[in-house]
């Protein structure tokens, strides 16, 4: 309850600050929309000529991409921890976090949220509805609920992986390029995993399970029954990965050395 109220306080403050820089906000919204549009055009161009890719047709691939955008948007709204090492460890901002009576990870989430990334949800839904109608998919009463569960699972997986990466900084604050690399790997989850070889498929399923953010859950809505098992694992994987990340974070905080002056 306390955490909810604090979350809303921070969110309100965030919006208030954003509103007061109105020009910036407008520019950013426009560039965000442009970015999404370019993404969409890219997809249409790339898949424009392929009609079938390993048994997946063009609309299905577009649908998967649309689905992927939704958990990804939630992840990027709340888990801006790609610069955690720089910002909190090297600069010692973690000191301040640790003197406040809120769980440190939660504080970083609410401090660094970027709510405008939520627009990705809209883009994702538009794409899904477009592709869905092309495919003649029908909406069942339970679909919205399953969708919510899958989206949360996907966002948790993303969050879990990136929290683990951020937590590594507690042990070693040397600079690595692992974060940008991981963003790239994350993109592989947007495409059907069976187009990759066995090893990559295994990695994307069990090690860095980005496939659970795109193909697997989307397969459920596409009625691809052969993937249902994986599809329903999505929320489970989400919870497992976030839990691992949480414990790893807590262990890391104990190792925090602070920044020497």
């Amino acid at each position: 309850m306390y955490y909810f109220s604090i979350f809303f306080q921070y969110a309100a403050q965030y919006l208030k600050t954003r509103m007061s820089y109105r020009e910036d906000l407008v520019v950013e919204l426009i560039s965000d929309l442009l970015f999404q549009a370019v993404n969409l055009i890219f997809i249409l161009v790339v898949f424009g000529h392929t009609t079938l890719l390993n048994g997946w047709n063009r609309e299905e691939i577009i649908f998967i991409y649309g689905f992927f955008l939704v958990p990804y948007a939630i992840f990027s709204s709340f888990f801006n921890i790609w610069d955690f090492n720089e910002r909190y460890i090297v600069k010692g901002e973690m000191d301040r976090i640790l003197t406040r009576p809120i769980h440190s990870l939660f504080q970083i989430i609410i401090e660094r949220m970027e709510l405008e990334s939520m627009f990705g949800v809209v883009t994702g839904l538009v794409i899904m509805f477009y592709a869905g109608s092309q495919l003649g998919l029908t909406l069942h009463w339970y679909d919205p609920f399953v969708f919510l569960l899958m989206v949360i699972g996907g966002a948790f997986i993303y969050a879990g992986i990136f929290i683990c990466l951020a937590a590594i900084s507690f042990w070693s604050d040397s600079k690595t390029d692992i974060m940008p690399m991981m963003y790239n790997i994350g993109n592989y989850g947007r495409y059907p995993v069976d187009i990759y070889n066995q090893v990559i498929r295994f990695v994307l399923t069990w090690i860095l399970p980005f496939a659970f953010v795109g193909v697997y859950p989307a397969a459920f809505f596409l009625g691809r029954t052969e993937w249902y098992g994986y599809a329903f694992l999505t929320p489970v994987m989400g919870v497992v990965f976030l839990t691992i990340a949480y414990f790893m974070w807590n262990a890391g905080v104990k190792k925090y050395r602070g920044a020497g002056n």
Partner: peptide
Amino acid sequence: TTIKMLTGILT
């Protein structure tokens, strides 16, 4: 360093 241990920042 002492203050950081007394305030719970460092273990």
